[in-house]
Design a protein around this nucleic acid. Sequence first.
DNA 1: CTGAAAGCGCTAACAA
DNA 2: TTGTTAGCGCTTTCAG
Lengths: 333, 333
Amino acid sequence: MKNKPSINDVARRAKVSITTVSRVINNILTVSAKNRVRVEEAVAYYKYRPNISAQRLARGLNNSVGLVMPSYPGIFHSFYAVELIRGVGHACEVLRMDLVFHITNGSNPINTNNVGGVIFADVIENRKQVEGALASGTPCVVINHKIDDLDVGYIAVDNTLGGRAAADYLVSLGHKKVATVTGNLTTQAGAQRLKGFEELLEEKGVPLPKEYVYQGDYSRRCARVAAEQFLKLPNPPTAIFAASDEMALEVMAVIFEKGLKVPGDISLVGFDDNPACLFGPVALTTVKQPLFQMAEGAVKYLHTVIHGGGTARKKTILAPELVVRESCSSPKK
Amino acid sequence: MKNKPSINDVARRAKVSITTVSRVINNILTVSAKNRVRVEEAVAYYKYRPNISAQRLARGLNNSVGLVMPSYPGIFHSFYAVELIRGVGHACEVLRMDLVFHITNGSNPINTNNVGGVIFADVIENRKQVEGALASGTPCVVINHKIDDLDVGYIAVDNTLGGRAAADYLVSLGHKKVATVTGNLTTQAGAQRLKGFEELLEEKGVPLPKEYVYQGDYSRRCARVAAEQFLKLPNPPTAIFAASDEMALEVMAVIFEKGLKVPGDISLVGFDDNPACLFGPVALTTVKQPLFQMAEGAVKYLHTVIHGGGTARKKTILAPELVVRESCSSPKK
DNA sequence: CTGAAAGCGCTAACAA
DNA sequence: TTGTTAGCGCTTTCAG
């Protein structure tokens, strides 16, 4: 039977009022040592745990955070989603907040009534939900998607800069024929990585023919097709930038299957700094995107906002960082 | 400002009692059409959403489910975890239950006070938590881990049978030299897959030398090492069974990198039926494990238990299914 | 330092 | 079909 002890049981056993019990629970100092001990004994005796619903109702605030994940195909089986879940989960555990998890296709508004704040893991066809949550007065923060025309927090990496960094590195190695598999371009991150990549090539006077740009969607499947197409070209690229490490890994696999070498025949740059890329046949050079920390940052932001701190930085843009490993070299002449 | 409308506001505007509003909210039929409309109008006007904490407190029950994930290294970046989260998330969305997410290293007891039931995604060094949750009277269900000495629900695949199926198939193709990369053997699933594999080989009189068994941990890293070791053997295997598809994929990658072919040189069987295995160079033959459905089943089980249905099947063992694709053939003689 | 009492927003008898 | 009323378990004034 689920017959939970209540604050009354504890109070009765400790022979104090429920108020005193409440004080002990909440670590309020104005309790005599004697009573404190009695209460603690009773709490232990009943294995008492306060009822959170009652606490929330009485306090009028809710220290749980909602994590909204778009159910966009494939997003779940990506490093991106997993790192965010992991990061948010850990941060909630540490800050003792409840994490309530929402999968959504963006169609109906999310119920912000049960949560103190919400984290959007990217915004893909669900901007309406952000607006709705905001309108209900719920603090929101979105990850990896800048939204400057709404009064919402965000924490994102500068994806344009990331794309530039990848291109710049490849060009500096002497590559003139560089191709890219993009991420999903309806995603802000995907579009900006491409933009930065294109920008830099143009600035350096390196042409980027259409057949060197394959519109992917972050999936390994696309990466495979892209790689096969690139390699079949009469004039194949000597370097490839993939908008995610997972795609880069797949590209690398295809290259090996064709009997070519990385970086000897083709140089490769990824995006994410996914640890899985360290132990393959060749460690991947990549643009680091600190997803785990972004997730933690989002939770901390909500935590301070919910607990009345007005001092939280609202909009954070992190600088990406190029991590040079073994997958790039100068092109053969 | 977060100034939420309450049931009182709605009642006042609709000029009815809060009870009537409550009835409309909860779809209780004894409300006149006229009043129903008035209430609905008022609800829409205020964009009113009931306060879940208050509902839970008043109802005395809690329709949210906790999902407990061991924070065992690597588990997060696995098909296993992702499918469970996805499955549980979807099922909760459909059944309108809240999903509260816990990451745990197993050390402190999980707080079952806020949830109506809890799902354990496998049990790895946290059996104590299951016992604790049970002791508090909370319905529990564990996924992919049989526990028969505790009064807990589970839904698992028959992993021993899965291991046997893989071995049987390989032997039936004529293989005499079959190796395996195991999963983490502290995991029930990992141990049983190996057990079934060994059993069947023994029954068929196929020897399994020590150097044909590599103790892995489900990680790609291990799979890579295992594959490299197998291939270096003076008498290398002609077939390999990997305890997860991800490991199988990595083994396949290594085989290709060495210039060998699947299945021409080496046959390969995985475990999971991970869709990622369909689009590689060779579609993987695998033992199907319906994780998504297991997750859904777990949620449904809790749903019926929480809502007072006594008719939920408590212990469910699913039969694994061998899915034959292209990664196996008879050995060259 | 302590406790009585008034809610928090909602549900569920019970009467009408 | 409707409304009155008594809680659900807790926090928080406010007196003492």
